[in-house]
């Protein structure tokens, strides 16, 4: 066997995929040829090295969360293409959607109302001037004021906050209520 041919067979030899006849011939060559033997050692060593896992496991919490996201994304897709569902299945799904919409519409109303109440309460305790805060995240300053940091909000800022909540909430409201109306209509 030539060195050239021996080197060609090395990969399969290391992977244990050579036919018995070739394996024996190569084995013989490796016994006699130190340069090919060296190459064989390196190939084996590389293969050993690469067997190591170079990835850290992000942990069970991550796997659970990721699986939930995947299932949410795929099941969502399947309900969108649910043209072939039977009438009873469809009705059951709509009933589920109706209850979910009703609950989340209720939650939205509660959030809006408490935002207004919280804003007003804050005005009573701290009626002075506005000092900083991010207008984009108006909702963040609706949290109870931190004792160590004086968050001061003006009346104008409060109106802005309420308007912001309304604007942010509007599309969701439309979504929620349209599902409710859809359900009512389909029931007729």
């Amino acid at each position: 066997m030539t060195c050239r041919f021996a080197l060609l067979l090395l990969d399969d030899y290391v992977d244990n995929e050579l036919a018995p006849k070739e394996r024996e011939a190569l084995k013989k060559h490796l016994e006699d040829c130190s340069s090919c033997r060296q190459e064989w050692e390196r190939t084996k060593y590389l293969k050993e090295l690469l067997k190591q896992k170079l990835v850290n496991d992000p942990g069970e919490d991550y796997w659970k969360e990721m699986t939930n996201i995947i299932l949410a994304r795929t099941i969502e897709t399947s309900s969108r293409e649910s043209v072939t569902l039977s009438f009873t299945e469809k009705a059951a799904m709509q009933r589920g959607a109706f209850i979910r919409s009703l609950v989340s519409a209720g939650v939205s109303v509660i959030i809006l109302v408490s935002a207004i109440i919280l804003g007003t309460a804050q005005k009573k305790s701290d009626p002075t001037i506005y000092a900083g805060g991010n207008r984009l995240f108006a909702a963040a300053s609706l949290k109870p004021p931190d004792k160590t940091v004086t968050t001061i909000i003006t009346k104008k800022e409060q109106i802005n906050q309420a308007q912001g909540m309304l604007l942010m909430g509007a599309p969701t409201f439309i979504g929620r209520f349209s599902t409710i109306f859809e359900f009512i209509n389909s029931g007729e």
Binding site: Y45, L46, E48, L49, L50, K51, Q52, K53, L54, V55, N56
Partner: peptide, 28 residues
């Protein structure tokens, strides 16, 4: 960051951890 230091436990030679780590870095 993601190269685990326990390489030498499964690889016979070279036995030095740091050496293995560097080698692995180069291979990667």
């Amino acid at each position: 960051g993601y190269i685990q230091l326990d390489l030498s436990q499964r690889v016979a030679t070279p036995s030095d951890n740091l050496e293995n780590k560097r080698l692995m870095e180069e291979i990667l």
